[in-house]
Simulated scan of single mutants.
Amino acid sequence: MTEQQQQKSPLNKALPGLLIAGSLAGVGAVMVGLLSLAPPVDDGSGPGLAAMEEPGAVQIENAGAFVLPPTVGPGGQSGLTPARLDAPPPLAAVPTVAPIPVPKTKAAKVKAKPSRIKIPKIKVNAPVGPVTVDIKGNLGTPPLSKRNQTGWYRFSPAPGEAGPSIINGHVSTRQGAAVFARLSELVKGDQIYVYRSDGKVVRYTVSGIEQVSKSTFPTKRVYGNTGGAELRLITCGGVFNKGAHSYKDNVIVYATLSKKKT
């Protein structure tokens, strides 16, 4: 090896390293360029959806992705669901039938009334009497002395006719368990039979059940107009307030007309 070959200049010695560094710099530049074209990642440091003036197309498509839908539970002791106030009535468990038409005769002036309700699942076989609202607008209940009697809101549709028919009953009295003590055991698909004063019998099928605070009672969902014939059963539930001598919650059963006999 010659003396000239042994004494390479410092530049020659550093040349391989410079070539590698240049290659890496080129790759880095390419990566920066690609990243500049990618959509930004929301790490939570920027404005949220609420602070944006107008959501983009992707935001509109995914607007409800993390919003739980309003629901009314299927029922059962472990299935009572505190639904949101804006939840619609639950969908029917089975195909429904058309409501009983109101006769267009003089006899129509005498409104048919429910006389008895039977719920085989929870062994209910009880008479039905009329109830109304008090001066404060609260729905009345059957007398506490008649713990096996239920009350039908007389300004609601007759069972089997279009709209929500309302029947309530006590869960307990000082004498013990009352007519609707086991109402919370009903589940979607259970049968309810209501007998009318005109001899007609209507069968409802439970579509949902919920437990709600009396302070946030879903008035619209319970009393709101419906196209078909529906039934609402109401009783008390939750914690018993000894001072007020009442329960803090209501248990509400929703049912739809599934059969009628004339």
Score class of each variant (00 low, 15 high):
V194W: 00
T216P: 05
I119F: 02
G237C: 00
F217T: 05
D43G: 13
A255P: 02
S197G: 08
A177M: 12
G237S: 07
N12G: 14
P143V: 03
A92E: 01
R147V: 05
I122E: 05
T141C: 08
I192V: 10
G26S: 06
Q175H: 11
S197M: 06
N125S: 08
S197I: 05
N241Y: 11
P157Y: 02
V222I: 06
K8A: 12
R154I: 09
V97I: 08
D42S: 07
V187E: 12
L91M: 13
G237R: 04
S258K: 04
K113Q: 15
A50T: 12
S156T: 03
L11M: 14
D198R: 03
G163R: 04
E230F: 04
E210Y: 06
A29F: 10
G151S: 01
K146C: 12
V124Q: 03
Q6A: 15
A255D: 08
I119E: 02
K200F: 10
T96D: 05
L15C: 09
R116K: 13
A87I: 05
G151N: 04
I117F: 01
K121V: 10
G237E: 01
K220L: 13
Q59S: 11
V27R: 11
P82A: 01
I117D: 00
R154M: 13
A38M: 14
S36F: 14
F240C: 06
K220P: 08
N62G: 11
V171C: 02
G243P: 02
V97Q: 05
P159S: 04
S213Y: 11
G228V: 08
P74L: 12
P101V: 08
A158E: 04
G140I: 02
V206F: 00
A25K: 05
M1S: 12
D86R: 12
A178I: 01
I20E: 09
A229E: 07
A92I: 05
S115H: 10
P89I: 00
G160L: 02
N62E: 14
Q4A: 15
F180C: 00
L80N: 02
V171S: 01
E3A: 15
G227E: 14
G228D: 09
G151E: 03
V124P: 01
S197C: 06
G75R: 00
N148F: 11
V58Y: 15
I192R: 03
P70E: 04
E3M: 12
Q149I: 09
